[in-house]
Design a protein around this nucleic acid. Structure first.
Lengths: 137, 137
DNA sequence: GCTAATCCCTCTAGCCACTATAGGTTCAAG
DNA sequence: CTTGAACCTATAGTGGCTAGAGGGATTAGC
């Protein structure tokens, strides 16, 4: 039997976050001690570690809910889980692409600034005059 | 004199967003018509375009406030604006680095999945057993 | 001058995944 | 038995908007 604090230390998930996961239904309501404190068992620990892991990989709460549901049906085809992971991967790649565009534009702006007064600062000018931009955004 | 809708069309910033910018102090409270509707002039238009542009580049509201303040002192040294842009560029690069790690890990998980039943699905297994991970996360 | 359509106003609540705070209760060690 | 840490619930806040309700203003056409 673990207290919520034990679970927190063992998984690296903060105590309020564990309660939050219970609230949004990622973990089921824990058993309680006589004094109404949460008491967990090993399978709760595993489930929380699973969630933590999925969150670290950037899956959102609905996706994790789906992954948990799938993991409870070991005989079901794997395509569902695969699909979720692939969709997420695609989203991550899109974010990277957008950030890279931003990076290039910012590099250009910063590198053009010759470092005198604000009057001819390229950073400020680039923001004021859209014509100085390389790409659409 | 522009109405808030005119300003919205001209800058591509949605009407509620313009009001939000006023609320958080990015633009000063506009003049009002007799019937209490906002009326803008050309310099308001320029300022909003500046803000839009900075948002597109991912600057957050406090950074934009600082950039606007700087842009009002044309004789001040440019270092402040430069600094803001460089800090932001660094933050963007960090985000990219994190997302790339994620991308690699997800690629590895997805590609290992041979596509049978959930029981031996690599996606689910990778989430359950941290030992299957390549990197720390 | 009237009417209808469109625009505009304020205020409040919702999004996501937490995090923080307040005010109170329980537990475990000494 | 006392103390202090850990626990409980409930509510509000984070950022940068967005959506909706319930009204008032403006404007184009007749």
């Amino acid at each position: 039997m673990y207290s919520i604090g034990d679970l927190s230390r063992l998984t690296g998930v903060k105590v309020p976050t564990i309660r939050y996961y219970e609230q949004v239904g990622l973990i089921s309501a824990a058993q309680r001690s006589e004094g109404n404190q949460r008491r967990y068992e090993k399978n709760d620990l595993e489930r929380l570690a699973f969630i933590r892991h999925a969150r670290d990989l950037g899956f959102d709460v609905p996706a994790i809910r789906d992954l948990i549901a799938l993991s409870h049906h070991p005989d079901a085809p794997c395509a569902g889980a695969d699909r979720i992971a692939e969709d997420h991967l695609a989203a991550v790649r899109e974010k990277i692409a957008k950030l890279r565009k931003l990076e290039r534009e910012l590099e250009r702006i910063v590198s053009h600034c010759s470092g005198h007064s604000v009057e001819d600062c390229y950073v400020i000018r680039a923001l004021s005059e859209h014509g100085l931009c390389e790409a659409e955004h």
